[in-house]
């Protein structure tokens, strides 16, 4: 067990006018670990994800990322090209809306292959083969490899986005409601896929979800947010089975069980 964190945030604050989106948020993530951020709409989950991934700047506080060479990088002090390079290689971002990530005018295979080409891969046959392999892993038929994403259903788009993100074996993936809006059969396959790949490849994940069942199945640890503050954090099953904070108790007791 390594004691060096992969990602570490201290004292994050961000206000949108009167509204505190983040209030003194600290956060640590270790390699290979899945951390879920849960809470209701407007609790600051997605804002935290955006700040951790450098997509949005906090008003105060710092986010450190330990790169592959072991050097600590201040995410918000990096140059824009350096941050873009990080997002292209070491990091992945799975958006709630796959259209935010996919290039709608490029074929499915192209969408997956593009990330490989950005890493310097040039052999067309290899790239195509790997793209087809990844499409198969997310249950998209190989015959669709040359089709445009706009001919895909919502669930297929989400699966395509996962394939595009994971094809480069990133060390850290940010996920914003990856299973939101998918039909349940796809959701189950996707959950299993994410869980297996994360384990196999040792990917660390920061996962934003409002679905506590998703957090339970995927995450080692959870952070519960309310009004921009972390009200409770700890082992996933401990927080969900023995919640201490009134808000967490409310959240857990409000879940419908099918």
């Amino acid at each position: 067990m390594t004691d060096q964190t992969l990602l570490s945030a201290r004292g994050l604050n961000l206000r949108f006018g009167e509204v505190a989106a983040l209030h003194n948020v600290d956060c640590d993530l270790w390699p290979g670990e899945v951390l879920a951020i849960v809470g209701e709409s407007g609790s600051g989950k997605t804002t935290l994800l955006n700040v951790l991934s450098g997509r949005m700047a906090p008003q105060s506080g710092v986010v450190w990322y330990r790169d592959e060479a072991g050097a600590l990088q201040d995410v918000h002090a990096m140059s824009a090209p350096a941050l873009r390079a990080l997002h292209r290689s070491d990091w992945g971002f799975v958006h709630q809306n796959p259209r935010d990530n996919l290039r709608m005018g490029v074929t499915a295979g192209g969408n997956v292959g593009e990330r490989l080409m950005a890493q310097g891969r040039r052999h067309y046959g290899d790239i195509r083969a790997e793209a087809i392999n990844w499409l198969a892993q997310v249950e998209i038929d190989a015959s669709r490899v040359d089709h445009l994403p706009r001919t895909f259903s919502g669930g297929m788009l989400q699966r395509l986005q996962i394939a595009r993100t994971l094809v480069t074996h990133p060390r850290l993936v940010f996920m914003d409601e990856p299973t939101g809006g998918l039909d349940v059969s796809v959701q189950a396959r996707l959950l299993d896929l994410i869980r297996t790949l994360v384990r196999k490849l040792g990917i660390a994940v920061v996962l934003v979800t409002h679905d506590l069942a998703v957090a339970r199945l995927l995450a080692h640890r959870v952070m519960v947010m309310q009004n921009g503050e972390v009200v409770e954090a700890g082992l996933t099953d401990q927080v969900l089975d023995d919640p201490q904070h009134p808000y967490t108790q409310l959240l857990v007791s409000s879940v419908l069980s099918a």
Partner: peptide
């Protein structure tokens, strides 16, 4: 919490009454 995860992984097994899986 991380250490507890590791202890469960290598030392402490648990069989509950209910099966909870993907």
């Amino acid at each position: 919490p991380r250490l507890v995860v590791e202890i469960r992984d290598r030392t402490l097994g648990y069989v509950s009454q209910f099966l909870r899986v993907v």
